[in-house]
Amino acid sequence: MKKYVILTGFALVLASCGTQKAVPVAAAEKAPEAKTAVELTPELAEGKNLYENSCAKCHKLYEPVKFSKEEWAPILVRMQKKAKLDDVKMASITNYIHSQL
């Protein structure tokens, strides 16, 4: 009998780990709304190209919407130095990221 109680408890623990948890209503309300894709101008396309090719050399790329403009500012400054990008290229990358927010 004791084995059945232990096995039942173990099965319940495993089952609870495998179930999908519901998202609380408050968290769902805070989720960002789906933004329509911004059409990339040639300048923004160049910024995207620079972002994808310069930044991906050293690390995985983050979606621009992962951070706010305020959070991106110090990241971009720090990465400009490490990637050895001039101000014109960095401005292009920054404009692309801001256009996606």
Rank of each mutant, 00 (worst) to 15 (best):
K60S: 08
K60P: 13
L61C: 02
L61P: 00
L61F: 05
L61T: 00
Y62W: 13
E63M: 13
E63H: 15
E63F: 13
E63P: 14
E63N: 15
E63T: 15
E63K: 15
E63L: 15
P64D: 11
P64R: 08
P64L: 13
P64A: 14
P64N: 12
V65N: 11
V65M: 08
V65K: 15
V65A: 14
K66D: 06
K66G: 04
F67V: 01
F67A: 07
F67P: 00
S68L: 07
S68R: 08
S68I: 07
K69R: 12
K69I: 01
E70T: 07
E70Q: 12
E71V: 09
E71T: 08
E71Q: 15
E71P: 05
E71C: 04
E71A: 09
W72K: 06
W72G: 03
W72S: 01
W72A: 00
A73D: 13
A73H: 08
A73R: 07
P74K: 04
P74F: 04
I75E: 03
L76Q: 06
L76T: 09
L76S: 01
L76V: 14
L76W: 03
V77Y: 07
V77M: 11
R78F: 08
R78E: 06
M79E: 03
M79R: 03
M79H: 01
M79V: 09
M79I: 11
Q80D: 04
Q80N: 07
K81S: 03
K81G: 04
K82Q: 11
K82N: 06
K82I: 01
A83E: 13
A83P: 01
A83L: 14
K84V: 00
K84H: 04
L85Y: 04
L85V: 03
L85E: 01
L85A: 11
L85Q: 09
D86W: 05
D86L: 07
D86Y: 07
D86T: 07
D87Q: 12
D87L: 10
D87Y: 05
D87M: 06
V88Y: 05
V88I: 15
V88S: 13
K89Q: 12
K89A: 08
K89M: 03
M90V: 08
M90K: 04
M90L: 12
M90E: 02
M90R: 05
A91C: 02
A91D: 11
A91Q: 11
A91T: 12
A91N: 10
S92I: 11
S92Q: 15
S92G: 13
S92M: 14
I93P: 06
T94I: 09
T94R: 14
T94K: 15
N95Y: 04
N95M: 08
N95D: 13
N95S: 14
N95G: 06
N95L: 10
N95A: 15
Y96A: 01
I97V: 15
I97R: 02
H98D: 11
H98A: 09
S99C: 11
S99E: 05
S99I: 12
S99W: 11
Q100M: 14
Q100I: 08
Q100L: 10
Q100G: 10
